[in-house]
Every structure is written in C-alpha cells, then in structure tokens.
Computed example of a mutant assay.
Amino acid sequence: MDVRQEYLDKARAELGDLAQAGVIMTGNAFSHVLLVKGEPEVPAADGSVPRLLEGPDGKALHAALGALGYAPEDWGGLSVNDAEGYPLVPGTLRLAIATLDPDTLVALDDAAAAAIREAFADELVELESLDAATLSPGLVVRVLGMRVLALGGFEKSLSDPKAKQLMWARLKQLPPQGEPY
C-alpha cells in the first residue's frame, strides 16, 4: 500500500471516530486554520438553521481569510458543542483539535475561548502573562506550536461597523505562515 493512502486511511478513521462521538466539523480537515465556534448557529429568516459556519459569519470569515492570502479551501470549522447541543468534554475537544492539527486556531466567540482554555489549561498556565493564559481577545499566543487567537464575538460584530473593524484588525495578525521548508 502507498504511504499516502495509509495517511488518508488513518485520517478517515480518526475523523470518523470524532463524528461518531458527535463532534461537529466542517471544511477541510487538512487546513492550516481551524475556526472554533461556541455559540449556536443563528436561524435564517425562514427558520432554518445553517450548518456550522455556513451563515453570514462563515461567509465573512471566508472572505477575511481570502483577503489575508489563505486559499479558499484552507480552513476548517469545529463546534465546541456536540450534535445534541451539549458541550464537548475538554478531552474530546482537545482530541478533535489534535486530530485536525491546525497551525492556527481561532476562537470565534467567548464560549469557544472558554472551551479552549479548559481543554488546554495545563499549557496555558505556563504562559508568561495572565492575558495570554486567559486567551484575552485580540492577543495571539502559542500553544503546542499553534497560533491561538480569541476574537471575542465575531458573529455579533457583523452588525456593527466599528466592531467589524476590530475583528479585521485582530485577524490581520494571522497571515498565512507558508510551508516550513
């Protein structure tokens, strides 16, 4: 068997296990950027609920990542809640992030930042400042080799031009890193 096929089979099995555990994921599982959302999707005017990051927030994030230089497919999404709406236990969230293995992790809202803080508590307490350890919105920190940024309410910012500018300023801290070779 070809080594590439073995890697693909391994990834399929790991992602399948996460899906069976109720983990909600979307996008490219091999991407550099993982967008983590804690707040539920906002229903559309017709009452339907879009899938994870397929609403206005997802469209705005895709546009922002494209403006930063990321390829259109270079993002993944993860909910901190399972398919039944319950919060993922910290170990499951940590496993999901480790499985997806992003270079950049973006907590889109306060609920996502809180879940990431809990999942990576041991690593965060080792950081040099309280702001870094608590994932203060707008501050980029390094955790296990990942750049981590808490945006602090991306979806809510879409209705306020000043808040949108703040989110854009925060996201501009995360340009593509390029390949490591």
Results as ranks from 00 to 15, higher is better:
Met1Asn: 14
Met1Trp: 10
Val3Asp: 04
Arg4Leu: 02
Glu6Gln: 03
Leu8Pro: 08
Asp9His: 12
Asp9Ile: 01
Ala11Met: 11
Arg12Gln: 12
Arg12Ala: 14
Ala13Gln: 03
Glu14Ala: 06
Glu14Met: 06
Leu15His: 04
Asp17Val: 04
Asp17Gln: 00
Gln20Trp: 02
Gln20Pro: 11
Ala21Gly: 11
Ala21Leu: 06
Val23Asp: 00
Val23Thr: 08
Met25Asn: 09
Met25Arg: 09
Gly27Thr: 01
Gly27Ser: 10
Ala29Arg: 06
Ser31Val: 01
Val33His: 00
Val36Phe: 14
Gly38Pro: 09
Gly38Arg: 04
Pro40Cys: 07
Glu41Leu: 07
Val42Asn: 09
Pro43Arg: 06
Gly47Ser: 05
Pro50Tyr: 09
Arg51His: 07
Arg51Asn: 14
Leu52Ile: 13
Leu52Cys: 01
Lys59Asp: 10
Lys59Gly: 01
Lys59Gln: 02
Ala60Gly: 04
Ala64Met: 00
Ala64Gln: 10
Leu65Asp: 00
Gly66Phe: 10
Gly66Asp: 10
Gly66Arg: 00
Ala67Cys: 02
Leu68Gln: 07
Leu68Phe: 00
Tyr70Met: 08
Ala71Lys: 06
Gly77Ser: 10
Gly77Tyr: 05
Val80His: 13
Asn81Pro: 11
Asn81Thr: 08
Asn81Ile: 11
Glu84Met: 15
Glu84His: 10
Gly85Tyr: 07
Tyr86Pro: 12
Pro87Ile: 05
Pro87Gln: 09
Leu88Val: 05
Val89Gly: 08
Val89Leu: 03
Pro90Tyr: 09
Thr92Trp: 08
Arg94Pro: 14
Arg94Glu: 05
Ala96Trp: 08
Ala98Leu: 06
Ala98Gln: 15
Pro102Gln: 01
Pro102Gly: 04
Asp103Met: 09
Asp103Ser: 12
Val106His: 11
Ala107Ile: 02
Ala107Arg: 13
Leu108His: 13
Leu108Thr: 11
Asp109Pro: 13
Asp110Ile: 15
Phe120Lys: 04
Phe120His: 04
Leu124Asp: 02
Leu124His: 01
Val125Ala: 03
Val125Cys: 00
Leu127Asn: 13
Glu128Met: 11
Ser129Tyr: 09
Ser129Thr: 08
Leu130Phe: 12
Asp131Asn: 03
Ala132Cys: 06
Ala133Asp: 07
Ala133Ile: 07
Ala133Met: 12
Leu135Asn: 07
Ser136Glu: 15
Leu139Lys: 08
Leu139Gln: 13
Arg142Cys: 06
Gly145Val: 03
Gly145Glu: 10
Met146Gly: 03
Met146Cys: 04
Arg147Pro: 04
Leu149Pro: 15
Ala150Asp: 09
Ala150Thr: 11
Ala150Phe: 11
Ala150Arg: 00
Gly153Lys: 05
Phe154Thr: 05
Lys156Trp: 09
Leu158Lys: 00
Leu158Gly: 01
Asp160Cys: 06
Asp160Pro: 07
Asp160Tyr: 00
Pro161Gln: 07
Lys162Ser: 15
Lys162Leu: 15
Gln165Arg: 15
Gln165Met: 09
Met167Trp: 03
Met167Ile: 02
Trp168Val: 15
Lys172Asp: 08
Leu174Pro: 07
Pro175Lys: 04
Gln177Lys: 01
Gln177Leu: 02
Gln177His: 14
Gly178Val: 15
Gly178Met: 10
Glu179Ala: 05
Pro180Arg: 08
Pro180Ser: 05
